[in-house]
Amino acid sequence: MLKRFIRDLKKYLAYSGKAAKAQLKSEVASSYLNWIWWILEPVCFTFIYYLVFGVLFHLKEEYMIAFIVIGVSLWDFFNRMMKNSVRIIRANKSIISKVYLPKYILLVVRLGVNGFKMAITFVIAIAAMIILGVPVTWHVFMAVPVLIVFILFTFGISCLLLHFGVFVADLHNIVDIVLKMVFYVTGVFYSIGRRIPGPAGNWLINANPVAYSINAMRSVLLYGKMPNLLVLLIHFVISLGLCILGIYIIYKNENGYVKSI
């Protein structure tokens, strides 16, 4: 299976890149403010969270704006990937009913699209860090492994959602509800560690890879602290397992998808 995966990925990587670019391009082509929305959206959400939670509820954190932008950027990526992947087979029916392509390639395309948007929010985060005068430590390099594990995890879950989304027609309703719930316990606009101290808070962070990634990202970028490496390793193994399982399931069933939609 690994051999086939590598061969397919090689074969379709050029297509994925091209298709991701094409999707980004067609997104901007349909609105006047164009690409400015990719910047405005995360900035606006950051300010809303800042006003509501930071100012109204006094949930202040150090470097609050940068703190929220980092949360927003990772969360948006995860959120979009989940919502895209449940419907991705239906959305691409015109393609998959006419040619064969490994179905997870459609997810790779979305990884490209949403990853690009995440990269833009990262630039905003860096700008915020510079303006707020966040001291840079060598810990920032740890952002790379954290990000890799986070993307692997997202991709693994996406593969599973892609598969079940084909057969369970209203799965997207459930995914929306679950995502909303996960959003509030992920600490996008507050620090779980400080608001929910003790073992409960630790659990919330370490058992939820999204919360862990956001938390770890803030530690290394803003506070110059090492994330919990053991947990990172465990998440890496779990994420890799999810990816392998997801790709295995897709390979096994993908040729039946067209018949079901």
Partner: peptide, 18 residues
């Protein structure tokens, strides 16, 4: 094969071909 409406014909040729 699933033309992308916002793209030009030339770009769609490349995508469909791939």
């Amino acid at each position: 094969v699933g033309f992308s409406n916002e793209l030009t014909g030339r770009e769609n040729i490349a995508l469909s071909g791939m």
